[in-house]
């Protein structure tokens, strides 16, 4: 489904993930696999910007991928500051780019 997904790997036989699910990303329909991280589903779609900082409006994305640095936080199901790299994707999730602590206009 995406050229960024690794379909065949010389060492890893299969990745731990559930069925295909649908979610909303910034008001658009999107899909990924249940149980993979929200960040992974977004990465597979080519998304690299997760949020913009409050003061200087600088873009941020995945940095540590293990839930430590909080760079990848987004608004998920209306809740801001959700660490997308360790939040499993679920059917029907609403994922939005975070501007400061809020959802941006038109998202």
């Amino acid at each position: 489904m995406s050229t960024l997904r690794i379909e065949k790997h010389p060492i890893i036989e299969e990745y731990y993930k559930g069925p295909l699910v649908h979610f909303r990303y910034d008001g658009k329909d999107a899909e990924g696999y249940a149980g993979e991280s929200v960040a992974a589903a977004l990465r597979a779609m080519g998304v690299r910007i997760h949020r913009y900082t409050t003061k200087e409006h600088r873009p941020r994305g995945v940095f540590c991928a293990i839930g430590r640095c909080t760079d990848c936080v987004m608004v998920v199901n209306g809740i801001p500051n959700v660490r997308t790299c360790i939040t499993p994707l679920e059917e029907g999730m609403i994922v939005q780019t975070q501007y400061g602590l809020e959802v941006g206009e038109g998202k």
Binding site: S37, R43, V62
Partner: peptide, 23 residues
């Protein structure tokens, strides 16, 4: 260094080896 696309080597490893997505 804060630009999206700069990440820990371990982060890249998590993305590709656990999540199955190329960083």
């Amino acid at each position: 260094w804060t630009l999206p696309g700069v990440m820990g080597a371990g982060a890249a490893q998590t993305m590709m080896n656990i999540q199955g997505v190329r960083p």
